Simulated assay, not measured.
Amino acid sequence: MKLILASNSPRRRQLLTELGLTYEIRLLAVDEEFPPHLHRAEVAEFLAARKAAAYVDGLAEDELLITADTIVCLENEVLNKPVDRADAQAMLGRLQGRAHDVFTGVCLRTGDGRQVVFSDQTTVHFRALTSAEIDHYIDTCQPYDKAGSYGAQDWLGMAAIDRLEGSYFNVMGLPTHRVWAELEKLGATQR
C-alpha cells in the first residue's frame, strides 16, 4: 500500500522516515475544534478521525492515510497550541513543576474503507522552571506550533523533563510502536 501522511509536522515526518517507511505528504486545512463533552484521549482520537474524514474522497484503493493529533492535558483541561507569546508563557507557567499527560490520536484509513483509530498516553513530569527559562525557550524555539507550548525534542524538553511514563515518541507527535503494529495488521509495512 502507498502511505499518505496528512501532516505538516516535521516531527511526524522524521519519525516515519526513521521507521523506514516511504510516504507522500498531502495537506488539507481541517477544523480542529472538538465537542466540549469529549475528554482527554477522546479529543485526540476525534481530531485524528476528523482529519482523515477530509481525505476520504481523494484516496485511491491502494492508499493508506495516516492522520494524527497531539494534545496536552493538565488534569482534564486541553492545552492547545498557544495563540501568542503571553499564552505560551501562561501555559508553560502552569506546566512547570507538575506532571501532565500527552495524548496522540492516530487514524489509519485505507482507500478500500478500513479505518483504525487509537491513541497513546504519556505522562510527562516537568521540573520547576524560572520565568527566565520560559522566556529563553519561547525566544529561541518559537513553540507556537506545539500543543502545550513545548516540544520534547527542543531545549525545554531536554532541560525540564524529569521523567516520562510512556513513549517519548508519542510526546514528539506519533506513537511509533503503535503505528507500526497497526500498519503491520493492515499489511502496510514495507520490509
Rank of each mutant, 00 (worst) to 15 (best):
D84H: 02
A90S: 01
W155G: 04
R178I: 12
L64I: 14
M1N: 13
Q14T: 05
D145N: 15
E42Q: 14
D69G: 05
Q153W: 08
D120K: 12
D69A: 04
M91T: 10
Q142H: 15
N76D: 15
T176S: 15
D57L: 04
T110D: 12
K81N: 06
M172R: 13
E133C: 00
T122E: 07
V116A: 09
V30D: 06
D145F: 13
K146A: 06
T122H: 11
S149N: 07
P36M: 00
L65Q: 04
N8A: 11
L15S: 04
V124Y: 09
R11D: 00
I161G: 06
L74D: 12
D101Q: 11
A60F: 14
Q142E: 15
A132W: 08
Q115E: 10
G148C: 08
A159V: 02
V78M: 13
Y55W: 10
Q153R: 08
P35D: 06
G93V: 01
T17F: 05
T110H: 10
H100M: 00
Y144L: 12
N170Q: 10
D120C: 08
W155Q: 05
Q153S: 07
G93I: 02
Q89P: 00
P10R: 01
D84I: 01
D145W: 15
R94G: 02
A147I: 06
V72K: 07
R85D: 00
A128Y: 02
F46A: 07
E32R: 07
D162N: 07
A54I: 03
P175C: 05
T17A: 10
C73Q: 10
T189E: 00
N170V: 10
E33N: 15
P82D: 03
E75I: 00
T176R: 14
T104R: 09
D120V: 09
I134S: 03
N76G: 08
K185C: 07
L95D: 02
D154Y: 09
E184K: 15
K146I: 10
G97R: 00
K2F: 05
R98C: 00
W180I: 13
V124A: 13
I25E: 09
L59Q: 09
W155V: 01
Y23W: 05
K185F: 05
D84Y: 03
P10H: 00
H37N: 11
R12P: 10
Q89K: 09
I66K: 05
M158P: 01
A29P: 14
A49C: 00
V102T: 06
A128I: 01
I71M: 12
C73M: 10
D62R: 12
L65M: 09
A68D: 13
D57Q: 06
N8P: 08
E77H: 14
A44F: 10
G151V: 09
A99C: 11
A6W: 11
W155Y: 12
Q121F: 07
T17W: 05
C107P: 11
R12T: 04
R127A: 11
L95V: 08
L3S: 09
E61N: 14
T140R: 14
K185W: 03
Q142R: 15
V72G: 08
T17C: 01
P175W: 09
A90E: 01
I25N: 11
D112M: 03
